[in-house]
């Protein structure tokens, strides 16, 4: 089994509206159910993290910019790590990811073991 990084991207929204606890719960449910589906197959290696919209990009010459969003419209919203036998199987696991419901996408990348 190999590990694969699933990166969630979507259009960058500079400031996300504050959600009520109910809205937050409603937003989290599809994510938790989807991650639960993967974990129930014993194919979740790492629950990963969500990323805040705010960020910085440091470039050669110590140039600091307000994130990658200036040049590309998409921003990384979060990631998880899954276990699968092949890139195809990992892609299969990515199906149903809630990011797809809001027009985002999932990038699936094989992790190169450092050992």
């Amino acid at each position: 089994m190999k590990e694969f990084l699933l990166i969630f991207r979507r259009e960058h929204i500079a400031s996300e509206p504050a959600l009520s606890p109910e809205q937050l719960q409603a937003m989290m449910k599809p994510w938790q159910d989807w991650i639960g589906n993967i974990a129930a197959q014993n194919k979740l290696a790492n629950s990963g993290n969500r990323l805040e919209a705010d960020g910085r990009v440091l470039k050669t010459g110590n140039i600091v910019t307000d994130g990658p969003y200036v040049e590309i419209k998409e921003a990384i919203g979060g990631y998880i790590i899954v276990k699968a036998n092949s890139l195809e199987e990992a892609t299969e696991l990515a199906k149903g990811c809630p990011i797809l419901m809001v027009g985002g996408n999932v990038e699936i990348r094989t992790i190169v073991s450092m050992n």
């Binding site: 449910k29 938790q32 159910d33 991650i35 639960g36 974990a39 129930a40 014993n42 979740l44």
Partner: peptide, 27 residues
Amino acid sequence: ENILQLYNKLLQIEYTPIAALNRTYAL
């Protein structure tokens, strides 16, 4: 719904076949 979310969490802490089966029932 509460039980399902708890099983989602439990499976992220530790996978066991029985938790996976019970989680699917809750689903």
